[in-house]
Simulated scan of single mutants.
Amino acid sequence: MPTILLVDNDPEILAALSAALEWRGYRVLLSKDGRSGLEQAGRNLPDLIVTDCSMPEMDGVELCRCLKLYPALTAIPVIMVSAQVQLRQKPALWDAFFLKPVDFNAMESTVGQLLFSRPLRETLRPLWSDRAMSRWQPVTSAIIS
């Protein structure tokens, strides 16, 4: 059963998305902000992350940047959700974008596609000249910015 981490500071949105995904057979983990979401991702290595863009402390964009710094977390696909118009996306920070209110059928289709493509994506490791010594050591170059 695939595990999906939901990161949002709105408990009602967490509850709605959680119920919809659990009903479809996914295991769901919840986090109330980007910082706790990053910690949860490191502890549980979810198969997919769905994050809100606007949150206090660490927003969704910063969460995506941090995920890309850790080799163990970089291959986890991310869906960004926002009440704002499409953000200026930095290349490869997230895999899909949805405006709120989220169309659950479209999200379910995207979740399935991202989970299905993940094993292939994990075998295609990028060739960076400054690889981290360990999969938990952050990458120190400016490859993300």
Rank of each mutant, 00 (worst) to 15 (best):
L29H: 06
G37A: 13
W128M: 12
A75T: 00
L99I: 11
L73C: 08
R27K: 10
M133W: 13
P101S: 08
Q137D: 13
L69M: 15
S82W: 03
A72G: 07
L17N: 10
G60P: 00
F116P: 03
V78C: 04
E57G: 07
R35C: 05
L99A: 14
V111R: 02
W94L: 03
M107V: 05
G34W: 06
R43C: 10
Q86P: 15
L21A: 06
L29D: 04
F104S: 08
V139D: 11
P2W: 01
L30V: 14
C66R: 14
A83E: 08
K32M: 12
S36L: 15
D52K: 02
L67M: 11
P71Y: 05
S145N: 11
A19P: 11
L63V: 03
D95M: 03
F97G: 10
P71D: 05
G112H: 02
V50Y: 04
S36C: 15
M58N: 08
A142E: 11
V139T: 14
C53A: 14
A15L: 12
E39A: 15
S141Q: 13
I76W: 02
E39P: 05
Q40H: 10
C64H: 05
L73G: 06
D52L: 01
A96Q: 01
L93A: 04
L29F: 03
A96F: 01
A83M: 08
E108L: 13
I13M: 12
W23L: 15
P119G: 05
V85Y: 09
V139W: 10
L29R: 05
T3M: 07
I79G: 02
K68Y: 07
E108N: 13
L99Q: 13
P71V: 01
A132Y: 04
V7I: 06
I13K: 06
M80F: 07
A92G: 12
A19E: 13
L93T: 06
P71E: 05
S82L: 02
D33W: 04
T123H: 03
W94P: 05
I143H: 10
M107T: 06
T110E: 06
A96R: 02
V61M: 15
M55I: 04
A132D: 04
S82Q: 04
E57T: 14
P11W: 07
V7S: 06
V61K: 12
E22R: 15
L14C: 04
Q89F: 09
K68A: 07
M1C: 11
V111K: 04
V7L: 07
E62T: 11
W136V: 15
G42S: 11
V50G: 07
F116V: 05
R121Y: 00
S141C: 12
W136D: 13
